[in-house]
Design a protein around this nucleic acid. Sequence first.
DNA 1: ACAGGCATCAAACATCTGTTTTATACAAGT
DNA 2: ACTTGTATAAAACAGATGTTTGATGCCTGT
Lengths: 212, 212
Amino acid sequence: MSGRDRETRERLLRAAERLFAERGFRRVTVRDICRRARANVAAVNYHFGSKLGLYREVLQYASDALRATTDEARRAGEGCAADEQLRRFVHVYLRRLLAGGANGWIHRLINQEMADPTPALDTLVEQALRPRIEYLSRVVAALLDCPPEDPRVRRSVASLQAQSVAYLPNPLAARLGMRATTSPAAIDEVARHIAEFSLAGIRAIGALPPRP
Amino acid sequence: MSGRDRETRERLLRAAERLFAERGFRRVTVRDICRRARANVAAVNYHFGSKLGLYREVLQYASDALRATTDEARRAGEGCAADEQLRRFVHVYLRRLLAGGANGWIHRLINQEMADPTPALDTLVEQALRPRIEYLSRVVAALLDCPPEDPRVRRSVASLQAQSVAYLPNPLAARLGMRATTSPAAIDEVARHIAEFSLAGIRAIGALPPRP
DNA sequence: ACAGGCATCAAACATCTGTTTTATACAAGT
DNA sequence: ACTTGTATAAAACAGATGTTTGATGCCTGT
């Protein structure tokens, strides 16, 4: 295997990461990727078998990164009380979610896959999403002092997750005149909002009478 | 104009509503619509000029319905305190959002348009989404006792909106083993969760020191 | 030096999709 | 009865898109 082949293979991966993260699997064409990677149209099929093969490889990388994010967030909260664990989880997650740097594409890609799934969703769910949700459920269950299977836990985790992804730049927010959250200071503020908002929410849910 | 033409026009609209709401504009083909409506492939272009023309007509109807939902929610809270206004807003919205009846497609369609916009997004934003957000902002601003332009208001409204749409049936939730929220009792419970969770969150945000 | 394997490329292919065309059938008005 | 306008139908068209093909050139091992 020569050096040149690896090169265009890498170029294809770099181009695919950005494009898939921006527009999702369906709205990116093989020709888009090859144009950006300065490669021939046949290159994708040669190196990855198919467009989906290339996508799977890119998504696998992102899935591993999401797992790493979860693990980092978990470590950041080790030994803390549950409310502090939640704060740090949100903080770590949002910093990675909204970061514009070299790894900024990773969580955008995962969000695209969740919004408009491909056959590759299942492995993503099992490898990265489910562990993440299970950890979050344990933290919330500790706050509510109830088993993780309690419907109030499920709903609170849903509230948490939904709030986080709402801050990804999207056309609707742009149309409503909101500017993207990218600076570290703004990200910290949003993380604080979500954490404190949700902590208070969870406590209120825990104090609620079971059924009015 | 004979009676028969109006008939297939209506059939096309009925078919388009369901399909667009299920899969969004891009993932529905003209042939899908015509097959379901038992009409010829050329029927869409004949009656509506183009696929986008048909979509615009369907979306306009949905946009009007969303406005009506906002107005109903507003009326439901008239004369109440701000926290009760928020509770009723969430309740009315979720009942319409998750209702499986003949109008169940409406809010699903709007969600599709927000997730994957078409050229028709702008009118939807101006006619239905902006009034809705402005009302919600006023309610939240009253709770926080601050002007509606305060960033804490914007973020709280985002939290509220994000939580609500999270309960639409989606492939990810299905993959995670959550069953859809469709029964009136379950909808009421979710609405209560979102309202109480968010009210506590908003109060906590209001009590927070401006910058730590 | 040469033969084999491999990456690259231009072109073509097959399919899908929105749209247009052309012809036909039917209803209404004169 | 004849003309006219309109809805429907089958077919074709044009462009996009994922994939395949066959040729070409380059590197490597012998």
